[in-house]
Each structure stands twice: as C-alpha cells, then as structure tokens.
C-alpha cells in the first residue's frame, strides 16, 4: 500500500515536472552546475591551488574575446594571475560543498529537535520552540556574521582560514536549524494523533521507534521543500560571509571571496573578476529558488490553488 501510494506520488511529481518548462530548464542548469562542481579538477584547464603554475605577470588579463585577452585564459585571470574559469569552478565546488554540508547539519539538528518537540510536547516543546523563536528573531545572517566574527577573533585569521570549510558548515548549520525544527514540529503535530501512530503505540512499540520509523517518514515532504530553499540560503550566507572577509580566504576562494577580491579592482576597470563569479552565484541561487517554488507548488496542493 505504502509503495503504491509512493509510486503514484512519484509519477505525479514527474508528470508535473515534464509539463513545467521553468522547472526543466532550472533542473538542467542546476545539474550542469553540480556536475561542474563535482568534477572541477577534471574540467578546469588549470589548477588554481598549484602555486608553481601561477604567474603573477598574468594578473588581470581580460576575457579572451576582449582586447588584450589571451586564448589560454578564456574568461581572463584574477588579481593573482589565476585562470578565472578554473578558479570559479573550484570556487563553485567549495560553495556547493559548504551549502550542502550546512543544510545536512541544519536538517540533522532541526529534525531531531523538531521531532522531540512535537512528539514529547509539554515543557520540552515550550522550551525548545522558545529558543527557536528567539534565534529566528535575530536573523540567521546576523547570527552567522557574529558567530564567525567571534570565532575569527578567537582563532586569529591564519588558523581560521585553515579550518574555514568545516567551520563555515558548522556556523551556517547552527544559524539556520530553527527553520527545520519548526517545519518538522508542525507536521509531527499533524501526524501524531493519526490512527497509525495510535496503532503503533497499542502494539507496544517504544516512542523512539514510533518517532523515527513511523512519524518521521511522513514529515519529509515539507522538509524536502524547505531543503531546496535552504541550500540557496546557505550558499548565499556563505557568499555574504566570504564577501565580508569572514569566510573562505582568497588563496582558496569560494564564489563569495572571489567577488570580494574582484570588487577592489572594479574601479580600475577589471570588471570581469567580479562579474563572472557574480553571474554564476545569481544563476545558481535563482535556479534553486525556482525549483523550490515549483516543488512547493507540486507537493503542497493547498497552496497551489491559492
């Protein structure tokens, strides 16, 4: 019964996907980006981390189709003489890794807290949700900026940059868990009093089992919907932190730190160092948001009508 229902749902998902041009285009671009991020070392013409291959004399060469451009650097070079295309590919890889890592962490913390809060109820629920409310009222970006600033002052810039990737995952993960906790709690409250949960309780299963293998699977579709938007948010937060100099260092740039590095050179006319990474970031976030919108419409027919 369960699998059959799932199948129908899946085919409906597929059906509406085929009919929606925006979704198809977005998904294709997203897949392309993810592919590029995953295989960056193979696709990139140069290795931007290999210091020996970088020549500072190559710095600020414009894109190949412009005057002064060279064919070996298709999109030109950045301030350190690295091939911009290769650096962007590696940067996308880092941004995607941080975005997805942070979302996994958020989802893990948020689902655990949301489940506990919704299922146990009472005082546990009141305390946990108060904490979530308070943290949400502070704007996730603000929390992320302040936490990363404190960590950077505590560790010093040098140490911070060495462990920047896991740190950013933890910082963004901690900043945004309340979103998940609230969503999961809301659907747990909806599921908790249904007959199948009661049946499970009557046959004597323990609450851990009921929570994780009975209720949890039924709360996952809203989790899926917010996950897409959360990935976009996490990538955007990471870019903002890096832009402020609180994220990835220029020696191992993410998209945000590339934009930051290029920004100082925009006044001298080297617009491409900022422009191409910026376009990459915008398109990446836009397609995720469009897919998220589509997914929300499909999985939540109540909203679809409105």
């Amino acid at each position: 019964m369960q699998t059959k229902r799932q199948k129908i749902k899946d085919s409906y998902l597929l059906y509406s996907f085929r009919r929606d041009k925006v979704a198809i285009v977005s998904a294709t671009i997203l897949a392309l980006f993810l592919f590029a991020a995953l295989f960056a070392p193979m696709l990139a013409p140069y290795d931007p981390y290999d210091v020996t291959s970088i020549d500072i004399m190559d710095a600020e060469i414009p894109p190949s189709w412009m005057e002064g451009g060279e064919s070996r650097f298709f999109l030109g070079t950045d301030i350190m003489g690295r091939d911009l295309l290769s650096t962007m590919l590696y940067g996308l890889r880092i941004s995607v890794a941080i975005g997805i890592g942070a979302v996994f962490l958020q989802a893990f913390i948020g689902i655990a807290i949301g489940l506990a809060s919704g299922y146990l109820g009472g005082r546990v629920d009141a305390v946990l949700m108060r904490i979530a409310d308070v943290q949400l009222s502070f704007s996730t970006l603000m929390v992320a900026i302040i936490v990363s600033a404190i960590v950077q002052v505590a560790f010093g810039v040098g140490r911070y940059e060495q462990i920047a990737v896991p740190l950013l995952i933890v910082i963004i993960g901690i900043a945004e868990w309340p979103q998940y906790a609230r969503t999961v709690r809301a659907s747990v409250l909806g599921e908790k009093n249904k007959e199948y949960v009661e049946a499970a309780r009557v046959i004597g299963l323990d609450s851990k089992r009921i929570m994780f293998s009975h209720i949890l699977p039924n709360t996952l579709s809203p989790v899926l919907v917010i996950s897409t938007v959360q990935v976009a948010n996490a990538v955007m937060s990471e870019a903002a932190l890096s832009f402020l100099g609180l994220g990835m260092p220029v020696s191992m740039p993410s998209i945000g730190s590339l934009i930051n590095a290029g920004f100082e050179y925009i006044f001298s006319g080297a617009w491409w160092i900022t422009f191409f990474p910026a376009m990459l970031l915008i398109v990446f976030i836009l397609v995720i948001n469009l897919l998220g919108d589509w997914l929300r419409d499909v999985l939540n027919p109540k909203l679809y009508k409105g």
Binding site: A232, M236, A239, A240, F243, I259, F263, I266, F267, W271, T274, A278, L281, I282, I285, L286, N289, L290, D293
Partner: peptide
Amino acid sequence: SIVGVSIPVFLTAIVLIYVFAV
C-alpha cells in the same frame, strides 16, 4: 521579485556602484 530575492545585497550594491558611479 523572484530574481530580486536571488541576488545577494552586496551584488546589487556593486552593480549600482559600477553603473552609476564608475
């Protein structure tokens, strides 16, 4: 508005500077 939501505020700022100031 959906495009607007997808553009980080610092990029809007940079574009504005580039067009209207530079």
